[in-house]
């Protein structure tokens, strides 16, 4: 058995997250092939979701051994239209491995960074560091410098704690903590305008009636989406604080809904990005709200929390 240099000091106990930026297929052969071969040699389940050129490199080297991979899929078919749905799909594909409890490896190439809306994927890469921290797997994320613009690659280097220096796995000098990164790429949190409609609500059903009436003006066929998303935030606030301050205003072709409370809620900027836990406990309301809105932002609001949902206007 050879010394496994492909995962640095990873012991298979926790999540490791590396960004590997390559210029050609030779670099893929040098970095990715040993990573996969070492994993298979150690009996670790290995998932590959990559571009066609990368999969061709692996097929050529592994030969029939490619059948030993747990997943060998094309990145092009893995994008679910949103970062949240794609992260959930990743999570679902890893569920059997998680339940087995043994360490595994993932080679992921998010080619969808270049599709419309795909640039937001970097936020989910950042959130994965916290959401999957206790998962025993090594995620090697590939980025083809020939196809991915430099600003997008820069974001990947800011969201992956590890990089490859040409010979070994080393800490990324550009890595930023999750909240710091999210705040830098999310839309700015600007003060609400004077012209806004607002209501202090203690009753979820009454709040829904108010929201539905206002949403009917400019939400088009997304009235139900707005209603459910705002409701989930109101329900969280009423449960945590007994009441919620709901405000709404229009800006730049969008409608913003803000739900604020004074309860001991969460101020976690990454809330709602990651898939909900496998058990039946909480966390789904905010996740659902984020999946329905075009944007969701969380900020501390005095002792409590303020959450904004942004929807495009019809």
């Amino acid at each position: 058995m050879t010394v496994d240099n492909s995962v640095g000091g990873w012991t298979g106990q926790r999540f490791a997250h590396e960004a590997f930026v390559y210029d050609d297929e030779a670099a893929v052969r040098e970095r990715v092939v040993p990573f996969v071969e070492q994993g298979l040699e150690q009996g670790q389940a290995t998932i590959v979701v990559a571009s066609e050129p990368v999969r061709e490199v692996l097929s050529a080297h592994l030969g029939p051994g490619v059948d030993d991979l747990a997943v060998f899929a094309d990145s092009a078919g893995f994008w679910q239209g949103t970062g949240q749905a794609t992260l959930a799909a990743y999570h679902e594909s890893m569920r059997p491995l998680l339940e087995e409890g043994r360490p595994w490896r993932l080679v992921g190439e998010p080619t969808w960074l270049t599709v419309p809306g795909g640039e937001a994927w970097s936020r989910f890469e950042a959130v994965a560091n916290d959401a999957f921290a206790e998962y025993p797997y090594y995620s090697l994320c590939l980025h083809d410098r020939r196809r991915v613009a430099q600003p997008l690659i820069d974001n990947q280097l800011r969201t992956h704690p590890l990089v490859w220096d040409g010979a070994a796995v080393v800490p990324s000098p550009d890595y930023e903590p999750t909240e710091q990164f999210l705040r830098s790429v999310e839309p700015a949190w600007v003060p609400p305008p004077q012209e806004r409609e607002a209501a202090l609500v203690t009753d979820c059903a009454a709040a829904r009636r108010w929201v539905r009436e206002l949403a009917a003006r400019d939400a088009g066929d997304r009235v139900d989406d707005v209603l459910l998303a705002v409701h989930e935030l109101v329900a969280n606030s009423v449960t945590a604080a007994g009441s919620a301050q709901v405000s709404t205003w229009a800006v730049n072709g969008h409608r913003v809904w803000e739900v604020a409370d004074a309860g001991p809620g969460l101020h976690d900027a990454s809330a709602g990005y990651a898939p909900p836990p496998l058990d039946l406990l909480g966390g789904r309301g905010l996740w659902l709200a984020r999946s329905l809105a075009d944007e969701l932002l969380v900020r501390q609001h005095g002792p409590g929390t303020a959450v904004r949902l942004v929807f495009s206007r019809s």
Partner: peptide, 15 residues
């Protein structure tokens, strides 16, 4: 209308 909290009740019943 049904929200996440009430859906959870159905999920628990299913379990």
């Amino acid at each position: 209308f049904i929200d996440v909290s009430a859906s959870r009740v159905l999920a628990e019943a299913r379990e």
